[in-house]
Amino acid sequence: MFDRLKMAAIAAGVSAVALLAGLAYGGNADYPATLLKTGASAPDFKGIDGWLNSPPLDMKQLKGKVVLVDFWTFDCINCAHTIPHVEDWYARYRDKGLVVVGVHTPEYSFEHDAGNLKNAIKRFGIQYPIAQDNQYATWNAYGNQYWPAVYLFDQNGRLAFSHFGEGSYDETEQQIRTLLGLKDKHG
Rank of each mutant, 00 (worst) to 15 (best):
residue 170 D to P: 09
residue 171 E to T: 15
residue 156 N to Q: 14
residue 59 M to R: 09
residue 112 H to V: 07
residue 16 A to W: 02
residue 121 I to M: 10
residue 120 A to Q: 03
residue 173 E to W: 11
residue 175 Q to G: 08
residue 153 F to Q: 07
residue 129 P to Q: 04
residue 110 F to P: 14
residue 27 G to Q: 12
residue 26 G to I: 10
residue 36 L to C: 08
residue 27 G to K: 11
residue 8 A to C: 00
residue 123 R to K: 12
residue 91 A to G: 09
residue 67 V to A: 07
residue 181 G to I: 12
residue 143 G to H: 09
residue 55 P to L: 06
residue 161 F to H: 15
residue 53 N to F: 00
residue 180 L to V: 14
residue 149 A to V: 02
residue 64 G to P: 08
residue 137 A to D: 12
residue 104 H to N: 11
residue 53 N to T: 09
residue 101 V to I: 14
residue 113 D to A: 04
residue 172 T to E: 10
residue 75 D to A: 06
residue 144 N to H: 08
residue 91 A to R: 14
residue 132 Q to W: 12
residue 164 F to Y: 14
residue 109 S to H: 02
residue 166 E to Y: 06
residue 166 E to W: 05
residue 41 S to T: 12
residue 88 D to H: 12
residue 17 V to F: 13
residue 140 N to P: 00
residue 47 G to C: 02
residue 66 V to M: 12
residue 106 P to K: 01
residue 142 Y to Q: 02
residue 78 N to F: 07
residue 3 D to W: 01
residue 132 Q to A: 13
residue 117 L to K: 03
residue 97 G to S: 10
residue 49 D to H: 09
residue 111 E to P: 08
residue 38 T to C: 00
residue 6 K to D: 07
residue 98 L to P: 03
residue 20 L to V: 14
residue 74 F to R: 05
residue 98 L to D: 05
residue 86 V to R: 01
residue 124 F to P: 01
residue 71 F to Q: 00
residue 16 A to Y: 07
residue 12 A to P: 10
residue 142 Y to A: 02
residue 146 Y to L: 13
residue 11 A to R: 10
residue 24 A to V: 13
residue 165 G to N: 08
residue 128 Y to W: 12
residue 67 V to W: 04
residue 83 I to E: 06
residue 165 G to V: 05
residue 137 A to M: 08
residue 107 E to S: 03
residue 95 D to H: 07
residue 175 Q to R: 15
residue 183 K to A: 15
residue 44 D to S: 08
residue 87 E to Q: 15
residue 35 L to I: 01
residue 104 H to D: 09
residue 7 M to E: 11
residue 40 A to T: 04
residue 116 N to F: 02
residue 178 T to Y: 10
residue 86 V to K: 00
residue 85 H to S: 12
residue 76 C to V: 02
residue 86 V to M: 09
residue 58 D to L: 02
residue 172 T to D: 01
residue 72 W to K: 03
residue 68 L to H: 03
residue 74 F to S: 02
residue 126 I to E: 04
residue 175 Q to K: 15
residue 65 K to R: 15
